[in-house]
Design a protein around this nucleic acid. Structure first.
Lengths: 188, 188, 188, 188
DNA sequence: ATTTAACCGAGACGGTACGTCCCGTCTTTAC
DNA sequence: GTAAAGACGGGACGTACCGTCTCGGTTAAAT
């Protein structure tokens, strides 16, 4: 026996309208554009409604992350192949709008609102997770795994996010090989 | 023959008052606080004056970078020693307020104003310069140098700026050794 | 033959709850507070319900006037006694919350909503009615009655409503005597 | 030696634009229309500017009273003539927009903001002042004066403001004569 | 000493966005 | 059909900055 009255929460219509526009905004204009005012102007959904359901930029970002998860792939068993596949995947993601822009935006948003920093950490973690996955499947110890992932992925992140350069894909592949060699996971 | 009249430009007093407060603001409240209004409130210097000399947040940031350069040290000739020294230096810098906070703020500012992105790139470049310096002094080729610097410094940057973790100093030193070994700059 | 289904109109419960709170609100916060929103907040009766039955502030005021009529007393036959009794009664009413506050609120409400002006006129009329009553019972002609009532009651109303002063009770009694004398209703 | 900087206070332009429109608004739409928002819409003066200088309806009303004082006339020495002149003057004022509307508006405004009640009292006082003036010039004692003024003017105010009837001019003249007779200021 | 250009402070002004509150209408659910 | 709960669009509120501007008074160099 439930309470009477209309169920709470935004209409599905409203939700999709707003979040779709929010993603669009985020990627084209950056996180600073993710204000209720802006969402209202762009979507036509009234300012009140936006405030009702997503009172802060944080709320919008969180909702976005929920509706647009990073698709992940299973390790195949061949560590080298997996690692190289993930390098390519990450490079593409950083180059393409959806993920690269999202991350940029998260970084910016986190600087304004400490609570959002947690979202950023989580998102970066999600980006690096596949590498951990692949190495764990190959039996690499936690400590070595962390080193390896840092060595392979960090330069890519720095180049894409801090230096605005295309990710050094070739170097990353080379690093992956070196890492595997060091861990003696490939027969020479 | 110069024109008569008072020379242009802000009084030294004004300059130091404003920029000192600006650095303080930047580090405590982030780049978003670097508005003429805030600077006026904090310094007592009138809003008009601030607008006259630093009309945009970009101008303030640029002025700040100019007055507070990163002190750098000369290579000693011993590559290994130099590299390890720089690793420690960078770790400290990323941990401490002046540089770490500044960089965080720059990243945020760049997300609001594309023009500022150039300042960010420059600043990151300045942070990495000493590594390049040390390796160039040892005769390492440009291409290898880039790889080496990326391998050593990127994880530190990622940890400090994206993951809010203390920089992995030990791992960085280890990486430095491996890099040197690969370049055959140290006798085993 | 009546229609099937539940009879229309609000539950008695709802009516008393809402109107009681409405009177309270009117007297403590003035007519501007008589909004469906406020009534909902104060009574717990849902906003929808309030809107259904009293869609406008006017409706609430009208309902209030209906449920809280001014109790009136019958003329005793002694004009002088009746008149003095009514003077005291009016003074008390203007001083005390239920009537004085109600009238104040009505005046304010009328300024916001012209329709309410009619309620105000009616209420003022009701306040003056007993005087007319007493004089008519004594056979005073309509024209003289109006003059007399105006002379006695107007100063009281002006003092209470426009000047925020306690009503000049003594003067009103004196005026009543003068009026009676002029009409030769009392033997000198 | 004055302080540097632009002198405070609104431009004359702004002042006249806003206050002119305010009076217009007050008389045509009542006191409830005297909001900053409304003044902005009507005058084109920006909302910020209105808020800066007249943050509350009270401020506007006060400014209006200052710029539009009630013109008053000197007693001629003939009490009877003076009193009858003032009766006519008050009747006209209550009938005409400028004063009658203003007073209505003041009453309404006072009901929303207690501070404004003081303005209302002052304004009513100003309306009655000429009567006091005339009688004082004739040597009537304070106490008797108050009674006389109340007897003459109160019915007019009540009719105009509470009953929305045209002021009973004839009766007021009659009352004035009676008052004078009682005070033995006229030879029969 | 005068000129003269620039300084600096104070503040008006038009804007825009903010976050809150309430309005009135409506839809959905339970009784 | 009553009642409750709440979504939704709309609008005003009062606040805070923004960036531009117009005033005054001051200061420092060049004449």
């Amino acid at each position: 026996m439930t309470r009477p009255g209309r169920p709470a929460g935004p209409t599905d219509d409203t939700t999709t309208t707003v979040l779709t526009a929010a993603l669009e905004l985020l990627l084209t204009e950056g996180a600073a554009a993710l204000t209720p005012q802006r969402l209202h102007t762009v979507t036509g959904v009234s300012r009140s409604t936006v405030y009702r359901h997503w009172p802060t930029p944080y709320a919008v970002l969180a909702a976005l992350i929920d509706v647009a998860p990073l698709p992940s792939q299973e390790p195949t068993g061949d560590v080298a192949a997996d690692l190289h596949r993930e390098v390519d995947l990450l490079c593409n993601r950083l180059r393409d709008k959806p993920v690269g822009g999202f991350l940029q935006a998260l970084i910016a948003a986190a600087s304004l609102d400490p609570a959002t920093a947690e979202l950023r950490r989580r998102y970066v973690g999600d980006l690096l997770a596949p590498f951990h996955h692949a190495l764990r499947a190959a039996g690499v110890a936690r400590r070595d795994r962390e080193d390896a992932v840092a060595a392979i992925a960090s330069p890519l992140l720095v180049e894409a996010l801090l230096l605005d350069r295309p990710a050094g894909r070739t170097r990353a592949h080379r690093t992956a090989d070196e890492v595997l060699a060091k861990l003696e996971l490939v027969r020479a």
